[in-house]
Amino acid sequence: MKAAPGLPAAQASALARLSDAFWRHPRIFVALLLLLPLSWLGVVYIGSLSALLLQSFFSIDEFSGLVQYEFTLKTYRELLTPSNFDIILRTFLMACAVTVAASIIAFPIALFAAKYARGRLKALFYLGAMLPLWSSYLVKIYAWKLILAKEGIINWVVEALGLKFLLELILSTPVIGGNSLSVSYIGTFIVLLYVWLPFMILPVQAALERVPRNVLEATADLGASRGQALRHVVLPLALPGIVAGSIFTFSLTLGDYIVPQIIGSSRRFIGQAVYAHQGTAGNIPLAAAFAVVPILIMAVYLWLAKRRGAFDAL
Protein backbone atom coordinates (compact mmCIF):
# COMPACT_ATOMS: atom_id res chain seq x y z
CA MET A 1 0.00 0.00 0.00
CA LYS A 2 1.27 3.39 -0.86
CA ALA A 3 1.60 5.88 1.96
CA ALA A 4 -0.86 8.75 1.81
CA PRO A 5 0.72 12.02 0.71
CA GLY A 6 1.74 14.14 3.69
CA LEU A 7 2.16 11.15 5.98
CA PRO A 8 5.67 9.81 6.62
CA ALA A 9 6.37 6.33 5.31
CA ALA A 10 6.16 3.48 7.82
CA GLN A 11 9.17 3.72 10.08
CA ALA A 12 11.96 1.31 9.50
CA SER A 13 13.99 0.80 12.66
CA ALA A 14 13.09 -2.05 15.03
CA LEU A 15 12.42 0.29 17.92
CA ALA A 16 10.13 2.42 15.80
CA ARG A 17 8.28 -0.68 14.58
CA LEU A 18 7.86 -1.82 18.18
CA SER A 19 6.51 1.60 19.10
CA ASP A 20 4.08 1.41 16.17
CA ALA A 21 2.95 -2.04 17.29
CA PHE A 22 2.26 -0.78 20.80
CA TRP A 23 0.32 2.12 19.37
CA ARG A 24 -1.85 -0.27 17.37
CA HIS A 25 -2.34 -2.67 20.29
CA PRO A 26 -2.66 -0.53 23.41
CA ARG A 27 -3.83 -3.46 25.54
CA ILE A 28 -0.55 -5.30 25.09
CA PHE A 29 1.31 -2.17 26.11
CA VAL A 30 -0.78 -1.75 29.26
CA ALA A 31 -0.35 -5.44 30.10
CA LEU A 32 3.43 -5.13 29.78
CA LEU A 33 3.46 -2.05 31.95
CA LEU A 34 1.42 -3.72 34.67
CA LEU A 35 3.26 -7.04 34.58
CA LEU A 36 5.96 -6.13 37.06
CA PRO A 37 3.88 -4.31 39.69
CA LEU A 38 1.11 -6.88 39.45
CA SER A 39 3.48 -9.78 39.90
CA TRP A 40 4.98 -8.02 42.89
CA LEU A 41 1.52 -7.46 44.35
CA GLY A 42 0.36 -10.96 43.44
CA VAL A 43 3.31 -13.06 44.45
CA VAL A 44 5.14 -11.15 47.14
CA TYR A 45 2.25 -9.35 48.81
CA ILE A 46 -0.91 -11.45 48.37
CA GLY A 47 1.20 -14.61 48.36
CA SER A 48 2.83 -13.97 51.70
CA LEU A 49 -0.49 -12.85 53.14
CA SER A 50 -2.04 -16.18 52.11
CA ALA A 51 0.91 -18.04 53.55
CA LEU A 52 0.32 -16.18 56.79
CA LEU A 53 -3.37 -17.02 56.72
CA LEU A 54 -2.50 -20.67 56.06
CA GLN A 55 -0.04 -20.78 58.98
CA SER A 56 -2.74 -19.60 61.36
CA PHE A 57 -4.75 -22.76 60.63
CA PHE A 58 -1.88 -24.98 61.78
CA SER A 59 -1.03 -25.58 65.40
CA ILE A 60 2.00 -26.24 67.54
CA ASP A 61 2.65 -29.45 69.41
CA GLU A 62 2.86 -28.50 73.06
CA PHE A 63 5.48 -31.13 73.93
CA SER A 64 7.82 -31.07 70.98
CA GLY A 65 7.28 -27.40 70.06
CA LEU A 66 7.05 -28.39 66.41
CA VAL A 67 4.45 -27.06 63.99
CA GLN A 68 1.84 -29.65 63.02
CA TYR A 69 0.77 -29.15 59.44
CA GLU A 70 -2.83 -30.16 59.90
CA PHE A 71 -5.87 -27.96 59.45
CA THR A 72 -7.26 -26.95 62.86
CA LEU A 73 -8.97 -24.03 64.60
CA LYS A 74 -7.11 -24.80 67.82
CA THR A 75 -4.81 -21.79 67.42
CA TYR A 76 -7.74 -19.43 67.00
CA ARG A 77 -9.32 -20.89 70.14
CA GLU A 78 -6.08 -20.06 71.89
CA LEU A 79 -6.61 -16.39 70.98
CA LEU A 80 -9.70 -16.38 73.15
CA THR A 81 -7.92 -17.42 76.34
CA PRO A 82 -8.15 -14.50 78.83
CA SER A 83 -4.50 -13.47 78.60
CA ASN A 84 -4.49 -13.40 74.79
CA PHE A 85 -7.92 -11.83 74.46
CA ASP A 86 -6.78 -9.05 76.81
CA ILE A 87 -4.00 -8.25 74.36
CA ILE A 88 -6.48 -7.98 71.49
CA LEU A 89 -8.93 -5.86 73.50
CA ARG A 90 -6.17 -3.57 74.75
CA THR A 91 -4.81 -3.01 71.25
CA PHE A 92 -8.27 -2.48 69.80
CA LEU A 93 -9.22 0.10 72.43
CA MET A 94 -5.91 1.92 71.99
CA ALA A 95 -6.44 2.02 68.20
CA CYS A 96 -9.95 3.41 68.75
CA ALA A 97 -8.70 6.07 71.16
CA VAL A 98 -5.85 7.13 68.86
CA THR A 99 -8.15 7.27 65.82
CA VAL A 100 -10.84 9.32 67.55
CA ALA A 101 -8.31 11.73 69.06
CA ALA A 102 -6.45 12.04 65.74
CA SER A 103 -9.64 12.91 63.83
CA ILE A 104 -10.65 15.49 66.44
CA ILE A 105 -7.23 17.17 66.35
CA ALA A 106 -6.75 16.82 62.59
CA PHE A 107 -10.10 18.24 61.47
CA PRO A 108 -9.60 21.90 62.45
CA ILE A 109 -5.98 21.84 61.22
CA ALA A 110 -7.05 20.35 57.88
CA LEU A 111 -9.98 22.76 57.58
CA PHE A 112 -7.71 25.72 58.16
CA ALA A 113 -5.13 24.45 55.70
CA ALA A 114 -7.68 23.65 53.00
CA LYS A 115 -9.96 26.66 53.21
CA TYR A 116 -8.11 29.56 54.85
CA ALA A 117 -4.34 29.18 54.48
CA ARG A 118 -2.79 30.67 51.34
CA GLY A 119 0.71 30.92 49.93
CA ARG A 120 3.45 30.77 52.55
CA LEU A 121 1.09 29.76 55.32
CA LYS A 122 -0.03 26.78 53.27
CA ALA A 123 3.58 25.78 52.57
CA LEU A 124 4.21 26.02 56.31
CA PHE A 125 1.27 23.72 56.92
CA TYR A 126 2.58 21.06 54.55
CA LEU A 127 6.01 21.34 56.10
CA GLY A 128 4.56 21.08 59.60
CA ALA A 129 2.44 18.08 58.71
CA MET A 130 5.18 16.23 56.84
CA LEU A 131 8.26 17.16 58.89
CA PRO A 132 7.70 14.51 61.58
CA LEU A 133 7.71 11.88 58.81
CA TRP A 134 11.20 12.87 57.70
CA SER A 135 13.04 11.93 60.86
CA SER A 136 13.69 8.41 62.10
CA TYR A 137 10.80 6.72 63.79
CA LEU A 138 13.03 5.34 66.55
CA VAL A 139 14.68 8.68 67.24
CA LYS A 140 11.26 10.30 67.64
CA ILE A 141 10.09 7.65 70.05
CA TYR A 142 13.19 7.84 72.21
CA ALA A 143 12.85 11.62 72.18
CA TRP A 144 9.32 11.21 73.46
CA LYS A 145 10.54 8.83 76.15
CA LEU A 146 12.76 11.64 77.43
CA ILE A 147 9.97 14.19 77.16
CA LEU A 148 7.53 12.00 79.10
CA ALA A 149 10.01 10.65 81.67
CA LYS A 150 9.85 11.56 85.36
CA GLU A 151 12.89 13.80 84.86
CA GLY A 152 11.54 15.05 81.53
CA ILE A 153 10.35 18.44 80.37
CA ILE A 154 6.62 17.84 80.90
CA ASN A 155 7.16 16.99 84.53
CA TRP A 156 9.45 19.96 84.90
CA VAL A 157 6.93 22.40 83.39
CA VAL A 158 4.04 20.98 85.39
CA GLU A 159 6.08 21.27 88.56
CA ALA A 160 7.12 24.84 87.74
CA LEU A 161 3.46 25.75 87.25
CA GLY A 162 2.59 24.15 90.58
CA LEU A 163 0.27 21.68 88.90
CA LYS A 164 2.11 18.53 89.96
CA PHE A 165 -0.89 17.36 91.96
CA LEU A 166 -2.99 17.38 88.79
CA LEU A 167 -0.52 15.20 86.88
CA GLU A 168 -0.30 12.84 89.83
CA LEU A 169 -4.09 12.70 89.96
CA ILE A 170 -4.20 11.74 86.30
CA LEU A 171 -1.41 9.20 86.70
CA SER A 172 -3.16 7.64 89.69
CA THR A 173 -6.09 6.63 87.46
CA PRO A 174 -6.21 2.84 87.51
CA VAL A 175 -5.24 0.96 84.32
CA ILE A 176 -4.26 3.94 82.18
CA GLY A 177 -2.07 5.59 84.84
CA GLY A 178 1.38 4.58 86.07
CA ASN A 179 4.53 5.67 87.78
CA SER A 180 5.25 8.36 85.19
CA LEU A 181 3.87 9.30 81.77
CA SER A 182 6.55 7.28 80.01
CA VAL A 183 5.49 4.04 81.65
CA SER A 184 1.73 4.51 81.38
CA TYR A 185 -0.87 3.88 78.68
CA ILE A 186 -1.38 7.64 78.57
CA GLY A 187 2.20 7.93 77.34
CA THR A 188 1.70 5.17 74.76
CA PHE A 189 -1.43 6.98 73.57
CA ILE A 190 0.31 10.36 73.27
CA VAL A 191 3.20 8.96 71.25
CA LEU A 192 1.02 6.85 68.94
CA LEU A 193 -1.18 9.90 68.38
CA TYR A 194 1.92 11.93 67.54
CA VAL A 195 3.43 9.49 65.08
CA TRP A 196 0.20 8.74 63.19
CA LEU A 197 -1.39 12.21 63.19
CA PRO A 198 0.00 13.25 59.74
CA PHE A 199 -1.73 10.23 58.23
CA MET A 200 -5.04 11.69 59.40
CA ILE A 201 -4.41 15.34 58.58
CA LEU A 202 -3.40 14.83 54.95
CA PRO A 203 -6.44 12.84 53.70
CA VAL A 204 -8.88 15.10 55.58
CA GLN A 205 -7.19 18.14 54.09
CA ALA A 206 -7.36 16.58 50.62
CA ALA A 207 -11.09 15.88 51.05
CA LEU A 208 -11.80 19.45 52.17
CA GLU A 209 -9.63 20.88 49.42
CA ARG A 210 -12.00 19.38 46.87
CA VAL A 211 -15.02 21.22 48.30
CA PRO A 212 -15.51 24.31 46.09
CA ARG A 213 -15.59 27.65 47.87
CA ASN A 214 -19.00 28.50 46.48
CA VAL A 215 -20.50 25.34 48.03
CA LEU A 216 -19.50 26.73 51.41
CA GLU A 217 -20.83 30.15 50.43
CA ALA A 218 -24.09 28.55 49.33
CA THR A 219 -24.67 27.37 52.92
CA ALA A 220 -24.47 30.94 54.21
CA ASP A 221 -26.49 32.21 51.28
CA LEU A 222 -29.27 29.77 52.16
CA GLY A 223 -29.33 31.03 55.75
CA ALA A 224 -27.18 28.47 57.55
CA SER A 225 -25.09 29.54 60.53
CA ARG A 226 -21.47 28.41 60.66
CA GLY A 227 -22.39 25.57 63.00
CA GLN A 228 -25.16 24.37 60.70
CA ALA A 229 -22.85 24.58 57.69
CA LEU A 230 -20.24 22.54 59.56
CA ARG A 231 -22.72 19.88 60.60
CA HIS A 232 -24.72 19.51 57.39
CA VAL A 233 -22.15 20.21 54.69
CA VAL A 234 -18.51 20.44 55.80
CA LEU A 235 -18.37 17.36 58.02
CA PRO A 236 -20.24 15.09 55.60
CA LEU A 237 -17.94 16.18 52.78
CA ALA A 238 -14.86 15.64 54.97
CA LEU A 239 -16.06 12.19 56.03
CA PRO A 240 -14.39 10.20 53.21
CA GLY A 241 -11.12 11.87 54.22
CA ILE A 242 -11.67 11.07 57.89
CA VAL A 243 -12.44 7.44 57.02
CA ALA A 244 -9.34 7.23 54.83
CA GLY A 245 -7.25 8.76 57.61
CA SER A 246 -8.73 6.45 60.22
CA ILE A 247 -7.80 3.45 58.11
CA PHE A 248 -4.18 4.57 58.48
CA THR A 249 -4.25 5.52 62.16
CA PHE A 250 -6.31 2.48 63.09
CA SER A 251 -4.31 -0.14 61.22
CA LEU A 252 -0.93 1.42 62.02
CA THR A 253 -1.80 1.44 65.73
CA LEU A 254 -3.12 -2.11 65.58
CA GLY A 255 0.15 -3.34 64.11
CA ASP A 256 2.71 -1.22 65.94
CA TYR A 257 5.05 -3.00 68.35
CA ILE A 258 7.85 -0.51 68.86
CA VAL A 259 5.97 2.32 70.58
CA PRO A 260 4.33 0.11 73.23
CA GLN A 261 7.68 -1.66 73.70
CA ILE A 262 9.52 1.56 74.52
CA ILE A 263 6.79 3.68 76.05
CA GLY A 264 4.11 2.26 78.32
CA SER A 265 3.51 -0.47 80.81
CA SER A 266 4.94 -3.92 80.23
CA ARG A 267 1.59 -5.31 79.15
CA ARG A 268 1.62 -6.44 75.55
CA PHE A 269 -0.06 -5.21 72.40
CA ILE A 270 -0.84 -7.38 69.35
CA GLY A 271 2.36 -6.37 67.58
CA GLN A 272 4.49 -7.34 70.54
CA ALA A 273 2.66 -10.66 70.84
CA VAL A 274 3.32 -11.40 67.15
CA TYR A 275 6.97 -10.46 67.61
CA ALA A 276 7.39 -12.64 70.69
CA HIS A 277 5.55 -15.67 69.31
CA GLN A 278 7.33 -15.80 65.98
CA GLY A 279 10.71 -15.13 67.58
CA THR A 280 11.75 -16.57 70.91
CA ALA A 281 8.64 -18.71 71.45
CA GLY A 282 8.78 -20.14 67.93
CA ASN A 283 4.98 -20.37 67.82
CA ILE A 284 4.45 -19.28 64.22
CA PRO A 285 0.80 -20.42 64.05
CA LEU A 286 -0.20 -18.30 67.06
CA ALA A 287 1.78 -15.34 65.73
CA ALA A 288 -0.06 -15.73 62.44
CA ALA A 289 -3.42 -15.95 64.17
CA PHE A 290 -2.62 -12.76 66.08
CA ALA A 291 -1.65 -11.07 62.83
CA VAL A 292 -4.98 -12.01 61.24
CA VAL A 293 -6.89 -10.13 63.97
CA PRO A 294 -6.09 -6.58 62.71
CA ILE A 295 -6.98 -7.67 59.18
CA LEU A 296 -10.38 -8.89 60.36
CA ILE A 297 -10.99 -5.77 62.44
CA MET A 298 -10.14 -3.54 59.46
CA ALA A 299 -12.38 -5.56 57.15
CA VAL A 300 -15.32 -5.20 59.53
CA TYR A 301 -14.56 -1.50 59.99
CA LEU A 302 -14.47 -0.80 56.25
CA TRP A 303 -17.62 -2.80 55.68
CA LEU A 304 -19.44 -0.77 58.36
CA ALA A 305 -18.10 2.50 56.97
CA LYS A 306 -19.28 1.61 53.48
CA ARG A 307 -22.70 0.59 54.75
CA ARG A 308 -23.09 3.88 56.60
CA GLY A 309 -22.39 5.74 53.36
CA ALA A 310 -18.98 7.12 54.30
CA PHE A 311 -17.78 6.80 50.71
CA ASP A 312 -20.88 8.23 49.02
CA ALA A 313 -19.34 11.67 48.64
CA LEU A 314 -16.23 10.28 46.91
Binding site: N214, V215, E217, A218, D221, V233, P236, L237, D312, A313
Partner: peptide, 11 residues
Protein backbone atom coordinates in the same frame (compact mmCIF):
# COMPACT_ATOMS: atom_id res chain seq x y z
CA UNK B 1 -27.96 33.51 44.95
CA UNK B 2 -27.88 31.17 41.98
CA UNK B 3 -24.15 30.51 41.77
CA UNK B 4 -22.16 30.40 38.58
CA UNK B 5 -21.48 26.66 38.64
CA UNK B 6 -24.59 25.97 40.70
CA UNK B 7 -22.76 24.99 43.94
CA UNK B 8 -25.16 22.13 44.68
CA UNK B 9 -24.33 20.01 47.72
CA UNK B 10 -22.92 16.81 46.17
CA UNK B 11 -23.75 14.58 49.14
Amino acid sequence: TVFQDYALFPH
